[in-house]
Each structure stands twice: as C-alpha cells, then as structure tokens.
C-alpha cells in the first residue's frame, strides 16, 4: 500500500468536549490534538477522571465533541448523522471493551461471526476468518465454547479477536487488563501489540496500568482533559 495515499487511521485536532455539570459545564477534553498511526500502539494514561474514556468515546464516534475535528480513516466525522457514524464505526473501528461484554448466547466463534452479520455479510462465510482470528489470539479449539465456559483471560482474547473481525483501521482498547492479574494482563498487552504490528492497525490503548507501558510504541498522558507531552517508554521508537 502506498503510504502517501493511506489515510491516517485517527486524527483529532483541537477537540473540546464538555458535559453538563450542575449549572455549569465540565470540560472533559480541552483542545486535544492526537494522531494514531497504522502499525503503532499509542497508550493513553492518566488518573481517573482525567478524560481518557472521553477521548476513547470521541475516537469511537460514540460522542460528538463540542468543537474540533475528528477524522477516522480519513473521513471527517463532524456533521455526520448517527447512521453514517454507525457505518463508519462498524467498518473502520474495532473496540476492545474494558469488560469483555460477550453475548451469553453465542459461542466464541459466533461472537466474531456476528460482526459479519452486522455488515450484512453471511456469518457462515465468515466462519473461516473467525477461526483464524481465534487462533491468532491463542484460542484454537475453543471456538465452540460459550462465555461462561471460558476463563477471564480467554474472554478478553475473544473480545480482542472480535474487534479485529471487520479488519478495522483503528483499534480502540479500553483498560483491557483491569480485570486480569498482572501476568495475564501483560500477555494481553503483548498480544495487542503484536497484532497491531502484524495487521498494521492503529491502536489507541487507554490504561491506568503503567507497568504495561513497556510494550507500547508511544505514550500520551491526559490530565484535566489536556494532553501532555509524551514520555519515553521502554520500547518506544519515537513519537509524533
């Protein structure tokens, strides 16, 4: 693919988001500008209430900012209707939820096949890709299991595989290790990093767990809705 013509998976420019707060408004994001590049994991860290989740919600097109520009896969989201944003999110964005949020009635493979169904493709034809992705996250032979038959770590892997099912440009990951012990958490972050590099997806990882940052490519900090300058991390190659 020609890098010159490939759109940036996520470009946020001067994004401001406020919420009603009593008689006034609380600023959740204050003129935030951020880019996420293909093949790179960007970790967003910060204390509780700093605006990390708001940043993720805006990037996921689930919340419309008060001002500023949000481009997903080169497409400006401002002014788009709910249906258009849903289509964009379905085809270009993958979301890894904090809790796996798997549907109780579906097997691990069906959790992925439903993504094809959402796109109007035959779930049956997506069976092969679903099994390939489950294998990629280390769940070979577990495709037929339902959520209650999987461990917490396995459910989180299904959550990750599901997010990749529609081949997104942008992967948004919300505190993926919060429900896991340190060892499993590290494994999940390693897995995400590896998948990001291999599949050339841009990953925005929101986490409060600074011990996991060694595996990511870039770190940005959020404080009171503002982005701070990136800090060095163990294996970072540089920042932009």
């Amino acid at each position: 693919m020609n890098a010159a013509t490939t759109p940036t998976p996520l470009r946020m420019t001067d994004v401001t988001l406020t919420y009603p707060d009593g008689r006034g408004r609380l600023t959740a994001l204050d003129r935030v500008s951020l880019r996420a590049e293909a093949g790179s994991v960007t970790a967003v860290v910060g204390p509780s209430g700093s605006g990390k989740s708001s940043l993720l919600a805006v990037a996921a097109t689930l919340v419309t900012p008060d001002s500023g520009s949000v481009e997903v896969a080169g497409e400006e989201t401002a002014g788009r209707g709910a249906a258009a944003l849903t289509r964009l999110r379905r085809s270009r964005v993958g979301i890894v939820f904090q809790q796996p949020h798997l549907l109780a009635s579906l097997t691990a493979r069906e959790q992925l096949q439903v993504m094809a169904d959402l796109e109007g493709r035959s779930p049956r034809s997506a069976k092969g890709r679903a099994e390939e992705l489950l294998a990629a996250v280390g769940l070979e032979g577990e495709a037929h299991r339902r959520p209650h038959q999987l461990s917490g770590g396995q459910r989180q892997r299904v959550n990750i595989a599901r997010a990749l099912m529609n081949d997104p440009d942008l992967l948004l990951v919300d505190e993926p290790t919060s429900a896991l012990d340190r060892g499993r958490g590290a494994t999940v972050v390693e897995l995400l990093t590896g998948l990001t590099h291999r599949r050339a997806v841009a990953t925005l990882l929101v986490t409060h767990d600074r011990e996991q940052l060694a595996a990511v490519d870039r770190v940005v900090e959020v404080h009171d809705g503002r982005l701070r300058s990136p800090q060095p991390s163990g294996r970072r190659q540089g920042t932009s």
Binding site: A60, L62, A83, T86, R87, R89, R90, S91, V93, I95, F97, H101, L103, A104, V114, M115, L118, E119, R162, N166
Partner: peptide
C-alpha cells in the same frame, strides 16, 4: 440492554 449497547457500540444499526 447491556447486550444491545454492546452491539450498537460494535456498529449494529437500529434497523438491524
């Protein structure tokens, strides 16, 4: 509702 919220977040249209 929680399942519907997840499906919506994943890109399910209201019509779907």
């Amino acid at each position: 509702r929680p399942d519907v919220a997840v499906l919506k977040a994943l890109g399910a249209s209201t019509r779907y």
